[in-house]
Simulated assay, not measured.
Amino acid sequence: MNKIRKYKKITSISILILLVFVLSSVSFSEELFKLEAKSAILIDASTGEILYEKNIHDKLPPASITKIMVLLIGMEDLSSGKIKLDDKVQVSANSARMGGSQVYLEEGEIQVVDDLFKAICLRSANDAAVALAEHISGSIDVFVQRMNEKAKQLGMLNTNFKNATGLPDEEHFTTAYDVSLMSKELMRYPKIQEWLTIYMTDIKVGKNKDVTQTLVNTNKLIRQYQGANGIKTGLTNEAGHCLAASAKRGNLSLISVVLGGPTSNSRFQESKQLLDFGFANYDSVPICKKNELIKTIKVSKGKEDQVNVVAGEDYSLLIKKGTSKEIEKEIIMPEVLKAPCEKGQKVGEIILKNNGTEVGRVNLIIEDTINKASIIDMFKKITTLFLGDNN
């Protein structure tokens, strides 16, 4: 009986020690930095892996961080061809009377989409954001609905947009985690990085284009931090000082978000602190590029006899510095495919291992559609096979 009690006592002590270790580990993670911001996150921009977090699911007002979603929808439509950079946009009374940060657009003046993007990226102009939103969707209400639909699509479960500017509204909120999701998606577009890294430029405004607005980037990190390439500042009395920042060094791209900072300087310093931590402790190993040829395989009963299999996405592997970079790649796919085959159809995977442990997977897809061969196609193939090609 005494032995059983002794065993129970030892077990209890062991469990207690384990709990203390786990709790101290969590505490260390949370106290890794002494940040003044209410909420903060650091992620790998390629994988989305979280490297640091503080209150990342707390719902907070985002101020002009909101415009990241405006830019994202704008880039989607620009890439699809729905809008063009030289599109002429007539400024409405609604957009012209926006308060806060603005470039003082006049009702009835004509602006081009390119300058509206610049005004949003550099000055965080509310009037330009609304003008672009109205150009894309026809009305601000329809555009805001699309913003919320896109948020759900990205998995931004604790976000609700009520406007395209970030001006205060009790029902307008997001989280640091959700901001990181839309930031990661936005930074996939090379063109947006061109605008976000401009320090200073001019645009002409007014019906007669007789007023020059000099735009200076509100994101000081663009000039102050090595590799900085975005993204967006935000400030209202309700939201405090906010910043979604991004930077790239070598193969590693990072995104940090701080919400509810007490001062303008604190948001920049704390963003630097987060990014410095990431670059000091992590590396990114590139595995493949989207549409990179992996293998050409045979097709049975198809109009063509073979098809290219390509990587379905850009993929890099995040590793801690000092650990092995020897990544094993195991390609799993069939030797032969049976027609018909659809473009983009998944046909296999690359399984990635580090020291024998699986660390990631990449989907392999078909590059082109291969239709099933008709009787005539089959006859031509047989004829060619037996008679040879006379050419």
Rank of each mutant, 00 (worst) to 15 (best):
K372S: 14
L42P: 08
N251H: 13
I203R: 04
S95Q: 14
K84Q: 06
V362T: 05
K152F: 11
I198W: 03
T233Q: 02
A373Q: 00
G108Q: 04
P190Q: 00
V216A: 08
V309F: 10
F143H: 04
K346G: 09
S39I: 01
M200S: 14
F386M: 15
P340I: 15
A339G: 08
I376M: 06
G227V: 11
T263Y: 07
V310D: 06
L254H: 01
H135D: 01
Q224F: 07
I136R: 02
E30A: 10
V26D: 00
I350E: 12
I327T: 12
G81N: 07
V20A: 03
K3Y: 06
M69Y: 03
M378R: 03
G230S: 05
I376E: 05
I15T: 07
I375P: 07
I370H: 07
V130F: 07
N291M: 08
L364C: 03
I332S: 14
T233M: 01
V103E: 10
V285A: 02
I351Y: 04
S79E: 14
P340F: 13
G100A: 10
S124G: 13
D114V: 03
V336Q: 14
K290W: 11
I43P: 05
N251I: 13
A176H: 00
P62E: 05
I376P: 08
Q345K: 13
A63R: 05
I332T: 14
N308V: 04
A40C: 04
I56M: 05
D202L: 02
L154K: 02
I10W: 02
Q145T: 11
F379Q: 06
A131G: 06
I65H: 03
E76C: 09
Q345P: 12
D86A: 09
G278C: 07
G250C: 08
T214P: 02
V257G: 08
L221T: 10
V22E: 01
L243H: 11
S124P: 13
I327R: 13
E134Q: 11
I140G: 07
S24M: 02
P262A: 04
G99F: 08
G230Q: 10
K59T: 15
N265R: 11
G344H: 02
V336P: 15
T357E: 15
I110K: 13
Y104W: 02
I294S: 07
P168W: 13
K88H: 12
T384C: 10
G356D: 10
N126C: 02
T357I: 13
V359T: 08
I255K: 06
V113H: 05
M378H: 03
A373H: 03
A373R: 02
K9R: 12
S27E: 05
T212I: 12
T175I: 07
Y315P: 14
K301Y: 13
N94T: 14
K298G: 00
A93C: 03
K325V: 13
G138Y: 06
K295H: 12
N163A: 03
L23D: 03
G322M: 01
I382M: 04
F117V: 05
A151H: 09
L60A: 06
T66V: 00
N217A: 09
S80D: 14
D127S: 07
S324V: 02
T66Q: 13
K338N: 15
K298H: 10
I365A: 07
N158W: 00
Y315R: 01
V70P: 05
M378G: 04
M187K: 01
L243P: 03
A311C: 09
L235Y: 15
L35N: 00
K303V: 12
V26G: 06
N265S: 04
M75F: 04
E185W: 09
L293S: 13
S246K: 00
